[in-house]
Design a binder for these strands. Structure first.
Ligand SMILES: [Zn+2]
Length: 282
DNA sequence: CGCCTTTGACCAGCGC
DNA sequence: GCGCTGGTCAAAGGCG
């Protein structure tokens, strides 16, 4: 039954509005003000590529908690306002950046058939992305789905590397990007890309009474976002600007950067509907 | 035994 | 035209 329903992902494969990386440039706006009041903050919402050229990178953010183009500001982060003077940021954390910058290791590489990394004709189609800012020390936030890490890269301007995750479902093309804020090591930015075409793996056992709207098919990012962007299994042609004042209320004022259970503390507001605390193991 | 994490290398797009 | 960054894949290893 729920084997593999047509995901219907790329509504318009040839529209891909956003052009991949827009970080190199960007004027850097850094709008995101993750004050210390919220635990989770919806960072951005990237453009939809439906079929109309009019639909541009939707950038609706009305609240102070929502920001746009996190990619941009992240690449540059130079507003100066967020600049933390005493950000420890131990660079030692960097396992391996470089790549093609400084010298080049003369040795290494057993040399093998280098015929991987995608084909040439394969165009990179990106899907709407949603970034969430969550205050937590663990970058592996449970969202109810199983992810497999497929890469990690050091981000410029950020002492912390970025991790790339992909849904373990073969039919699912949802990807997740997790990285830590360069300014606030306690803040983890999780960027979701795509929609899950399957139900959550783990199931809320013992806490399923609260799942009033348990969207078996719309559980991709967060129930709140789903209401605004994914009222239906598939992205509608017209999205309603999340100007709703309900967004900010997503996170309870749990300003407690301490440690232990950071995001779980308030996941009942964001992920609580998708995943239950303590359902997964890893 | 199976699954997932880790690491290096490669590619594509974009900027300059 | 070259260089850079981001993004992805693949193989091996580790852990449960
Ligand atoms: Zn999935």
């Amino acid at each position: 039954m729920d084997r593999d329903p047509p995901p219907n992902f790329s509504t318009a494969d040839s529209s891909t509005n956003w052009t991949s990386s827009s970080l190199a440039s960007a004027s850097v706006d850094a709008d995101y003000l993750l004050s210390g009041d919220s635990e989770t903050t919806i960072l951005t919402e990237f453009g939809w590529n439906f079929d109309s050229d009019e639909v541009q990178p939707s950038r609706f953010l009305d609240s102070d908690q929502i920001a746009t183009d996190y990619n941009a500001d992240f690449a540059g982060t130079s507003t100066g306002s967020l600049q933390s003077p005493d950000v420890p940021v131990p660079l030692a954390s960097n396992p391996s950046l470089s790549s093609s910058s400084s010298g080049e290791p003369p040795e290494k590489q057993p040399e093998i058939p280098r015929n991987k990394v995608k084909k040439k004709g394969q165009k990179r189609i990106r899907q709407p992305r949603f970034a969430f800012m969550t205050k937590s020390e663990v970058d592996h936030l449970e969202d109810g789905y199983r992810w497999r890490k497929y890469g990690q890269k050091a981000v410029k301007n950020s002492p912390f590397p970025r991790s790339y995750y992909r849904c373990t479902n073969s039919k699912c093309t949802v990807k997740k990007r997790v990285e830590r804020s360069s300014e606030d090591p306690t803040v983890v930015i999780t960027t979701y890309e795509g929609q899950h075409c399957h139900h959550t793996v783990g199931f809320p056992r013992g806490g399923g009474l609260n799942m009033a709207h348990e969207p078996a098919f719309g559980t991709q990012f967060s129930p709140h976002m789903a209401q605004f962007f994914y009222p239906e299994p598939h992205p509608p042609p017209t999205i309603t600007p999340p100007n709703a004042p309900n967004l900010p209320s997503v996170a309870p004022s749990q300003a407690e950067p301490t440690n232990s259970s950071p995001q779980v503390a308030s996941d009942e507001g964001l992920l609580g509907d998708v995943v239950a605390p303590g359902m997964r193991r890893r």
